[in-house]
Amino acid sequence: MAQMLSYMHKDTWIHRLSGVTKMLYFILWSIVGMVTYDTRVLMVMFVISIILFSMSKTSFYQVKTVFTIIGIFLTINILAIFLFSPLEGTKIYQSRTDLLHLFGSYVITKEQLFYEFNVALKYFTVIPVALMFIVTTNPSEFAASLSKLGVKYTIGYSIALALRYIPDIQKDFTEIKRAQEARGLDMSKSAKFSHRVKNMMAILFPLIFTSLERIDTISNAMELRGFGKKKKRSWYRERPFTKTDYVSIAFIFIFSVLAFVVTFIDGTRFYNPFI
C-alpha cells in the first residue's frame, strides 16, 4: 500500500531529469493530448509514451490500482458516449457506414467506433506519462520545480510534506483500526454496512486527534527552523539542468508545435479517413 503510486528511487535518465523539465513535459504533453483528435498524432504519442514508460523502469505493480480505476472510468466514458450520442462519429466525420443495427436509433457505425477508439487512445497517451511523472519525481524536487515555475514555495512544500506523511498516517490508521477491532468493533465485510460505517467513525476520531498532534509538532518544528521567514528559499534536492534537460525541453516544444500543425492543418481537430 505504502509503495503504491509514490516516488521510488531508481537510476534512469528519466529519474535524473530535473523536476522542472518533467513538469513542463507533462503539462505540454497533456495539453497536446487533450486538444488533438488526430489519430496519427495520437498514435505517435502513444508509442512514445510506452517507450518512455518502459525506459523509466516503472513496474506495473506500482501503478496497477490506478490503472484499474482509470480503466473503469474509460469504459464508463465510452459506453456513455455511445448511449447519449450514438451518431457522434457520423456528425464529426460527415459520413455514415452502418455495421450493426441494435434497437431504436442505436446503430453501430464505423465512424462511431473510430471516434471512440480515438477517445480511448487519448487516455492512453496521457496516463502513462502522468503516472510516470509521479513515480519518478522526488516530492521535494517536485516542490522545488513548482516554486521555480512561479508557485509560492509554501504551497509546493505543503504538497511535498503531505506526501512525506502519507505512510505515517497509513501506519496510524492500521494500528488504530486493529486496536478498535480488538475491542470488538467489526470492520470486516461480514458486518452490516451501517455498523461498518459507525465503527469506522471509531477509527476516524482517534486518527484525527493523532494527526492534529502531529500537525502541531511539525508546524512548531518548521517555524523554529525558519520556514516561511523569507520570500524565497533554496532547495537541497534541486537538480541543475543538464544537457538531457535541454534536449528534452527542446523536444517537447518542437513536438507540440508539430503536433498542432499536423492536427489543425486541415481545419479540424480530427483526422478523417472516411472522405
Binding site: S140, R214, T217, A221, M222, R225, K229
Partner: peptide, 22 residues
C-alpha cells in the same frame, strides 16, 4: 518522529539552510 520534516536525512538536516536561501 514529529519533527522530522525532510523526505530524507540530508534534506532534514538542510531544512533551515534552505529557508535561509543558502
Amino acid at each position: 518522529d514529529g519533527q522530522f520534516i525532510g523526505l530524507t536525512v540530508a534534506e532534514d538536516i538542510a531544512f533551515s539552510m534552505e529557508n535561509e536561501c543558502v
